[in-house]
Design a protein around this nucleic acid. Structure first.
Lengths: 224, 224
DNA sequence: ACTGGTTCTAATGTATGCGTAAAATTCAGC
DNA sequence: GCTGAATTTTACGCATACATTAGAACCAGT
């Protein structure tokens, strides 16, 4: 036990490490892996690995198959469309609800900060930082919506498309104008205009869906 | 092994049995239970019970707590509101998508049948049968929407409110007019009117939310 | 009697071994 | 050479034993 950050349990550690392996592509989409192999790779026994895999299965990241090992769930353009459709609806509602809550500037501060971070990242062409700030923005948005189930679902959707998003992040045009939309959304929420907030967020996701699907098709990325 | 329906695996069997125990209230909302107790109760070892509990946790039915056993997740009016808000959005989209798909009468047959079953159940005042047919109706609706993620999410939401629904089923007014709405929805889908279909379904869920929340409050059902 | 620390207990977290069933291989028969 | 049945392999499902640790109980000192 040389490592100090023992995540408090091997199962949690396995979840973290497996997520890393999946998101980074070291466990490729559609590939099969045995519990035993993964356990050895993570330096622990099968039990915590198995529990971690069950949890990841619930989140749609792997598929546990009877005696064929676990398959890293592939992600196709159809999946991308599904995810964006769900996000459009749920984040749209979250935006409306947030607007209806008369939030203070303190409440909105994290979103404002995330926008600033995105702009800073765009200014120096750092797409990873932009993506991280974008994540925080959307996470904060649904949090302010006040519906924990929506937060949970959008988190899962974000994870499911993480690999695809990483690829797209570097082939898409730089997200120059997106922070303008984000600002408008924050303004609408601050002004308490629920309909406008919902409309802006829906538009944001709908446009993004079209853009990303087109990119995937153009680059023949049929599975990620 | 006198039982013929061995569900093919103890873990699956544990999931089924635990769901029954939870939905029937024999494992009461908010109560704590030890893995060992549950294992003994189900006549198997801790391992499959533990795996079943992990899966149920992902579905929000139980909470596995650090060394304090598992808690049967309570369900409050706030949860009910959250669930209905999610259903309003996602089923609304599913209805619109179904309408946009030019479905054949064969495709719509299960929904039509479910409506007939609901009416038959109402005619003989059998609320359980009505609820079962209603489940099928909504399940079919989202299935025809064609978004597997929405199907999965609505299934989970339905399970989460199953206990509450069971209680409400017998204190709510008889669902006399609901099949009229359902028919209108099917007509809109058949006619390919996506906007109307969405509107009808959203209205359906929104009204139901108000009705149920009012009932919960009136009967002082703050946790189920 | 109260507080601080220690010990003890018990429930979970993890490792391990075995039985089982599905897949792969081999071999017999055609 | 091919097909299909028997055998072998092997990966998982599950049981069991052990380690760990949170919380309870207890004890000593004031």
């Amino acid at each position: 036990m040389s490592n100090t950050e023992t995540a408090s349990s091997n199962t949690l550690l396995a979840i973290t490490q497996l997520r890393d392996l999946i998101f980074s592509g070291r466990l490729g989409a559609g590939t099969d892996h045995l519990e035993g192999e993964l356990a050895e790779r993570l330096g622990m026994s099968r039990t915590p690995v198995r529990e971690a895999l069950l949890r990841l299965e619930c989140q749609g990241l792997v598929e546990v198959r009877r005696r064929k090992g676990v398959r890293i769930t592939p992600f196709t353009p159809k999946d991308m469309a599904e995810v964006y459709d769900v996000l459009t609806e749920l984040e749209g509602l979250a935006a409306a609800r947030a607007a209806a809550r008369n939030l203070s500037d303190d409440d909105l501060a994290p979103m404002v900060q995330a926008i600033a971070d995105m702009e800073a990242a765009v200014a120096v062409c750092n797409r990873d930082d932009w993506a991280a700030a974008d994540d925080i923005f959307h996470c904060e948005l649904v949090r302010l919506g006040g519906n924990d189930r929506i937060s949970m679902i959008t988190q899962i959707m974000a994870d499911q498309m993480r690999r695809a998003r990483l690829v797209i992040l570097y082939i898409r045009p730089a997200p120059m104008h997106s922070s303008k939309e984000h600002r408008k959304l924050v303004d609408a929420i601050r002004a308490g205009d629920a309909d406008l907030a919902k409309q802006i967020q829906r538009q944001h996701r709908t446009v993004a869906k079209g853009l990303l699907l087109e990119l995937l098709e153009r680059h023949h990325l049929s599975v990620l």
